[in-house]
Amino acid sequence: MDVNMLQNILLTIATASTPLLLAAIGELVVERSGVLNLGVEGMMVIGAVCGFAGAFITGSPWIGALAGILAGVLLSLLFGFLALSLATNQVATGLSLTLLGIGLSGMIGEDFVGRAGIRLPRLDLPVLSDLPLVGKLLFGQDPLFYVSIALTAAVMWFLFKTRTGLTLRSIGDNHKSAHALGINVLLYRYLAVMFGGACAGLAGAHLSLVYTPQWVENMTAGRGWIALALVVFASWRPWRVIGGAYLFGAVTIGQIHAQALGIPIPSQLMSALPYLATIVVLVLISRDRRLTVINTPASLAQPFVPDR
């Protein structure tokens, strides 16, 4: 294996992991505020189709990315209206949102099937991008890769270093006492849900503008569910989401390489490896009960209605 091949493999892993990371980091903030939105898959797929449509119509993939974000936010507002304003059951509402999102994306996307997509341009810095081994990895990736890393850092800083972040976490832990302290619980939660929608929409746009620049119905193919699982995997800690997303991506790509090398293991077992690996690693890291309890939002998925 030469240096170039190693770099290429790492780049492939990064591309596969980025949409998972984007969607998961958004959902992490949502869940930290005490809301469980199981509609990530639906918001992602809407982001994918609107991202593609935006880029296709305007010719600018940047506008496409914005369209993806916007679409994700709009769909998340629908969830917010039901789950927050009307205090409906969050699990059922999120699942219904996924059904709606998949149907809606199919309707929107009918005219875009089979059309050539537009790719978000990769970063290209003189000299730096051409460095051996790390050049492309550090300085030559698609913009959303950098966004995903920066976003994770920003969420980490926001949740643990800012007052607003502390407030958000306290709402997730106990919305009643937060309310008693005069905090507008629903407002925070709406904003968190919208942030989650934006991230899921962007993750979808990554699929249709970076990963595979085209629109195919259901192109998220279950990645929204993986993102949801990664939030749990991370025990609601942002840096662990990076770990989870890249672990999942690495095992996925690794098993493909193993297959291409002709290693005689059933392909079904190979395809199951990412899921098994995630379970095993989570078992290993979640044995410290105390740490897990501290980080789990205690009022997750419980509806909140301000009493008067």
Binding site: M5, T12, P19, Y211, A221, T252, I253, A260, L261
Partner: peptide, 25 residues
């Protein structure tokens, strides 16, 4: 001939991953 089974008829992402892996090899 190198063969990669993606265990799906349509998962654009996985197909792209497989394509890249094959090219890398």
């Amino acid at each position: 001939l190198k063969v990669v089974w993606v265990n799906s008829w349509h998962d654009a992402g996985k197909e792209a991953d497989a394509a890249k892996a094959l090219v890398d090899q």
